[in-house]
Design a protein around this nucleic acid. Structure first.
Lengths: 310, 310
DNA sequence: CCACTCGATAGCCAACGGCTATGAAAGGCG
DNA sequence: CGCCTTTCATAGCCGTTGGCTATCGAGTGG
């Protein structure tokens, strides 16, 4: 027969109380049950563990050898139950999120702050990267959840994408300079010949902007290229050129003006992605809820045509 | 329901193989049994541990949390069984022996050497002390076994004494000097006025010698007192005086002569003692056997009237 | 000497772990 | 396109076992 945890527990109870009857009530079973199980344990191990002298229960050498290990096992069993419980109800855990640079700065920051406030025991890991990087990381199981741009052609069967919001791409220009066009919306064709501040390789925005210009029949004119989001906006503010950026990054920048494009109107859809096969950790599920709440309050003050929740 | 060791084992097997069927044959049970037990474990812990995707079994966050603890528990369970087995068959263990100084030097040394050769894994602790000390130590459970002098009046009901051998007390004198008496045996009365080298307080021999002299009607004359066995024998060898010593200590001392006493003939009985209530460790039982063997070979060359096995 | 304490024993029952047989769903392949 | 294979889940059965109550037996103390 195999050794059982409750047998170890009974043995430890007897070792502590030096008393079968008290050990039994301590363990919440009847004295004969406990006695029998201790006997079974002794038979299993092939050694007497206790000396049952009338009124003087003592450990044998074998019992002395077993006691510390038995105690450690019982402690570990309890620790195992506690560990699983903590992970389940999110007193502990790990949430690994990915996001494109623009989304990390704009959306994730606030959502993560909320999440951390609500679930302080969950470790947070954020990975910033292009959508292609994020997809690969999701596949390798390195991320639980990723905020990315939902490109129409990218329908990966292994990934589940939930559209979160749709936003316009705007032309950014300094707020203290004249608008780049006299109309409310700027035709893409009017970008011809205008110096543009362009993102580095890897940004979806770079490809979107270039593709739009090419579709309008011209190659964009670049003032500077290779910057990250923050640098690009600084350059625009300095008057070096215009930039095509998602509306959300202009939310907190009063020094920049955003002018919607038209012919065609450029948009992007932000989506939450996760691997279909792996079950989402509870923390990832909770994050989606937190994110949804965050979105409603976040977008509330500027929910024009340029940013629509889905 | 309570968590069970075999459930942890099944879970670990699945975690390692990422495969229920293979985990089942690895564990030596049928696949349905293993599946059921893993489910039961999940219910017990209140959390899913595994994602069962067709051909891709993976751990959930809770499973990841449980795995290292489960492995540790299984390792400890095995260690516990091994530890008890090792103690039982004396690959490991502890033997705490006590002995009077004369017995430690004369008898124990050889017996312990034999014992250690036969059971190298057993740790040995020796405590040297007077019989009263040894009895107290046995009572407190600090000793498993003690070699002591069996005094006729000391019949402690808690202790079991097995007489081992009986030996005469001899008068020791330098071998290169004339014998202390012209006869083969020396009457106790003849010790009157002869300078004696006397043991320190605590030796039974001190009391025995003094009592014998008083019984013969005189107070012994002390040349030196307070010595341990070895010092006493050195003093005798230097011609400072005579000493009454057990025959066994003269076995390995060709420079000393031993003369039996008479009127009365003084003897002492060496006994092996252990606490009656506590079961003897296997090592203590084995030691008795080793000691018995040792005695037959040890006393073989000098088994005269002065040393008789019992 | 009787009452009490305390562990062992006996006998019973419900629960449970294991088994075989079978189902169900997802690929793989002719 | 449908069949076969793989793989885990389900169903139903059975022997074992852990737990219970009742009782014994031995040692203790008033």
């Amino acid at each position: 027969m195999a050794l059982q945890i409750h047998q170890l527990a009974y043995f430890v109870a007897v070792a502590r109380t030096r008393h079968f009857t008290r050990a039994a009530e301590l363990s919440g079973v009847s004295q004969p049950s406990l006695s029998k199980q201790v006997r079974v344990l002794e038979n299993t191990l092939g050694a007497r563990l206790l000396d049952r002298e009338r009124g003087a229960v003592t450990l044998t050498a074998a019992g002395e050898a077993l006691l510390p290990l038995a105690q450690r096992i019982l402690i570990d069993v309890e620790a195992a139950q506690r560990a699983v419980a903590e992970v389940s109800d999110m007193r502990r855990g790990l949430l690994r999120l990915g996001g494109t640079p623009s989304l990390c700065a704009g959306l994730l920051a606030g959502a993560l702050a909320r999440f951390h406030a609500e679930y302080p025991g969950i470790d947070l890991q954020v990975r910033e990267g292009g959508s292609r990087d994020l997809v690969a990381a999701l596949h390798r199981g390195e991320l639980d959840l990723a905020l990315m741009i939902d490109s129409p052609q990218g329908d990966d069967p292994d990934l589940h994408l939930t559209p979160i919001l749709r936003e316009s791409l705007l032309v950014a220009s300094p707020a203290d300079a004249p608008a780049p066009t006299t109309q409310a919306r700027m035709p893409v064709a009017d970008l011809r010949g205008r110096p543009l501040v362009m993102f580095r390789e890897g940004y979806d925005l770079r490809e979107r902007t270039r593709a739009a210009c090419l579709a309008a029949g011209f190659e964009p004119t670049l003032a500077i290229e290779g910057g990250e989001m923050d640098a690009v906006l600084q350059f625009v503010e300095a008057g070096i050129g215009l930039a095509v950026v998602p509306s959300m990054v202009l939310r907190t920048r009063p020094t920049l003006r955003g002018t919607p494009l038209e012919h065609p109107h450029l948009e992007r859809t932000v989506a939450l992605a996760y691997r279909r096969e792996a079950s989402l950790p509870a923390s990832a599920v909770a994050f989606q809820t937190v994110l949804a709440v965050h979105l409603t309050t976040w977008g509330a003050d500027e929910l024009g045509d340029d940013l629509r929740l889905l």
